[in-house]
Design a protein around this nucleic acid. Structure first.
Length: 129
DNA sequence: CGCCTGACGAAAC
DNA sequence: GGTTTCGCCAGGC
């Protein structure tokens, strides 16, 4: 916006020759699709499950692409580490996320999941990573 | 061809 | 302890 943060200094385009590894995205889809009903997880948790902090950003990005790819992923069960429904704005309707979560028994207050830890679903733990 | 933004997270100040 | 900046990878302009 008005203020530009971050120092733009990344000129390391590590791009292998024609290496389209969608494995990352695919893995995210798989994990997201395995989220049990009534549970929630965080982008960072999934990213960590992959083995490294590949950057939780890509996880969310994968969701975005998944939606476009007609892939059904309960993205509404995925929130940021704060338990806040950050991605609600990216849904068809900003209320869809809250509604779905509430419908599953999760209490959402002020766009934030109540007892996030209680409903937190760790892929690493559940999947046995 | 080059730089920035982006559904986050953690470290640094 | 609060706020800010960097870091990651990829796609978009």
């Amino acid at each position: 916006m008005a203020t530009k943060k971050k120092s733009i200094t990344k000129l390391k385009s590590i791009k292998p020759s024609g290496r389209k590894d969608e494995n990352f995205f695919e893995l995210v889809y798989e994990i997201a699709g395995q989220i049990p009903k009534g549970r929630v997880t965080s982008y960072g948790a999934i990213a960590r499950c992959l083995g490294t902090r590949m950057s939780a950003r890509m996880v969310g990005w994968a969701m975005n692409g998944s939606r476009k790819a007609n892939i059904k992923i309960p993205a509404h069960r995925v929130v940021n580490r704060n338990g806040m429904l950050v991605g609600r704005h990216h849904f068809k309707t900003p209320t869809e996320m809250e509604t779905l979560l509430k419908k599953e028994g999760i209490k959402v207050k002020n766009n934030t999941i109540v007892d996030f830890e209680k409903h937190f679903w760790d892929p690493v733990k559940e999947l046995g990573f």
